[in-house]
Design a protein around this nucleic acid. Structure first.
Lengths: 242, 242
DNA sequence: ATTTCTGAAATTGCTAACAATTTAAAGAGG
DNA sequence: CCTCTTTAAATTGTTAGCAATTTCAGAAAT
């Protein structure tokens, strides 16, 4: 007896229909990644398999596969027999990630200066509007998400999926870093700087645009308490004396 | 009854001892990655689970986990119910990868120009000697491996593991690309260019070093048949007429 | 000779049940 | 009230066996 449940959907182009299992794993990873990006899942949060199974309505094997993948992307950390939890990047890792972002995003700018189309600018402006709308409404989650989307859109417009994939992980990890080390409660207000980057892009001036991007990334990093927490070895003997 | 086989090895620093399972999976992924890097596993090769289990002396579950990881890194591709095989990057993917490499490696150079130590130069020169030795002996596998190692060493000396991880994957995928698209049988002889890069680094001249690196990467890409295979839609009607 | 069918072998995918470990709570003793 | 031990519950890790699919050789048919 043969049981056939394969669906040859996607008469369309190349991307080849994903298997049910693959779809499901991606759904789970996306849910978790999105929650991390929007800082609804703070660093250190335990991710108990059974709870994920219940709240996501998923198969345990699929949840485990998703957690494994997220661990490879440094978004969750898995300890044997202890389970998974949202990663807590160290100060050193934070600096390395921002350095890598700077390299990648500057490279993306260099590509974009050459090939940016009129329609691309429109997309970027629409993205900024979304961002401003979120700022006005004060929806913290939305602000953070839209802010990340701007950077991802730049990567997407570069037309290079390899760069996009790499940057996507770095930006998600940045959300963790901001959760951990942000100075003030005000969500980053670098919305203007995004506008500056677009303006500079439109002038086709590579050097100027690169400076805008560098400045913007530097601002984000500067808004953190990295220095404060760096090289801080807690001395249990002195911590509690007042 | 309690069975204890945990070993709290590594009284040393942070890295925390890896579990037996984790070690095993890494051993398998390393074996396959190394074979790909040295072009002993050509693109498209089927990776039958049972065969890997036999030849690597491993557990089937560990083999499967390793294949999953390699698939995420785009080194193997897995089709449902068909199993795993070594990836065959398209021309478009090849161009994207080299573009990404250029961005990353130029960024790494910029870091290195600022912080390169005397001891680092020694390490780089030792690496080049290894490479030359391989060239003299004509060991094709060794040449390819050592050539990749040079680029990885640069990344390692940058002191940024995030960059290193990203570049490692790109270089492995480059090996696949070279396997698929190299013009001549001569393994790339860009050994001199590696020397040029070191020389330029020693002068602390950022612009010059960047040009060396750009030139080197461009040479590698230029030694491929990417143009030839690009936009080549095979017409089954005309392919076989002579 | 070429194609089409067919059934067995090879291969991959899945899951339920169990094993091992950690975590939390309860208890014992001082 | 505190500390240590013991026990139970919660959680994660593993595996053997079977299910489903593909592959391929050889038979059957045109």
């Amino acid at each position: 007896m043969y049981i056939v449940n394969k669906i040859v959907s996607s008469m369309n182009g190349q991307p080849m229909s994903l298997s049910k299992k693959e779809q499901e794993i991606q759904r789970i990873t996306n849910s978790i990644t999105k929650a991390v990006s929007e800082q609804r899942l703070p660093p250190g949060t335990r991710l108990v398999e059974a709870q994920l199974v219940a709240s996501l309505g998923a198969n345990r094997n699929h949840v485990r596969a998703a957690l494994q993948r997220l661990a490879l992307r440094h978004i969750v950390s898995i300890e044997t027999n202890k389970g998974a939890s949202i990663a807590q990047p160290s100060v050193e890792e934070a600096r390395n990630i921002f350095m890598a972002r700077s390299i990648l995003e500057r490279g993306i700018i260099e590509i974009l200066v050459k090939r940016l189309r009129r329609s691309d600018v429109t997309l970027l402006q629409k993205q900024i509007q979304q961002e401003q709308k979120a700022v006005e409404k004060g929806r913290r989650e939305d602000i953070i998400r839209e802010s990340g989307e701007f950077h991802l859109l730049l990567a997407r417009l570069s037309g290079n999926p390899v760069l996009l994939d790499m940057l996507r992980d770095l930006i998600t990890r940045s959300s963790l870093i901001i959760s951990l080390y942000q100075k003030h409660n005000n969500p980053q207000c670098g919305c203007d700087e995004h506008g500056d980057i677009i303006s500079a892009l439109e002038t086709q001036d590579a050097e100027k645009t690169l400076q805008c991007m560098s400045h913007h990334l530097h601002d984000i990093e500067y808004g953190l308490n990295l220095d404060f927490w760096e090289n801080r070895k807690v001395d249990l003997g002195t911590v509690f004396e007042e």
